[in-house]
């Protein structure tokens, strides 16, 4: 008799607990994860702001040049040593770029697109969101250093909201790290 009472009581407690938990569990299932939402927003922005066009090296595919997504957003490949850029003279053509679309030459010298993946040594792994925002707001490397060079269109990106810049950074920190040490820029000859 006593064991039956205990069983009944236990069943009742379990049922109550189930009732109590059920709405919470249902609520949690539908509650959006703000971090996931931020990363998704960042992924969308990176896509439509064409970051991959320059920061993911192009390779030749069956339909022509296409981004090599195995090196997504890892910048100019360290193993691709570029020869000296062609001389264009003083005409209206002022710049040239590599087949990978990751190296550019012009009056500013030669610039290479940066590794935006979270690799700690060669990418943005040790950056903070504040540093990232300051770099894009000011057009300065690391937020305080040399100018970010053409063709990076930072003046336009500088006008993004804090929320969007933080979302972009959150996404970039979430993608696979790629170890790829991008060369430093090359300055033009002194005479220019």
């Amino acid at each position: 008799m006593r064991s039956r009472q205990i069983l009944t009581l236990t069943t009742a407690v379990a049922a109550l607990a189930a009732l109590a938990l059920a709405p919470a569990a249902k609520g949690e299932a539908t509650k959006p994860d703000p971090r996931k939402a931020q990363i998704a927003r960042g992924a969308y922005l990176v896509k439509i702001m064409v970051c991959n066009d320059c920061h993911t090296p192009f390779k030749m595919g069956p339909k022509g040049p296409e981004p090599d997504m195995s090196r997504m957003l890892s910048g100019h490949p360290q193993d691709l040593v570029m020869p000296p850029p062609p001389k264009l003279g003083n005409g209206p053509w002022i710049a040239s770029f590599a087949a990978t679309n990751t190296a550019w030459a012009g009056p500013w010298g030669v610039s290479y697109t940066a590794n935006l993946t979270p690799d700690p040594e060669t990418g943005l792994g040790k950056w903070t969101a504040d540093t990232f925002m300051q770099a894009l707001r000011t057009g300065k490397h690391e937020g305080v250093g040399r100018p970010i060079l053409p063709p990076m269109p930072y003046p336009w990106f500088a006008q993004a909201t804090d929320e969007d810049l933080r979302a972009i950074f959150a996404y970039l920190q979430s993608i696979p790290p790629v170890k790829n040490k991008v060369p430093q820029p090359i300055e033009p000859p002194e005479s220019e």
Partner: peptide
Amino acid sequence: MRLRILLAFAALAVPL
């Protein structure tokens, strides 16, 4: 000099 002009031009587009 051309580089400085280019960089200065880019900087002008930064929101004030």
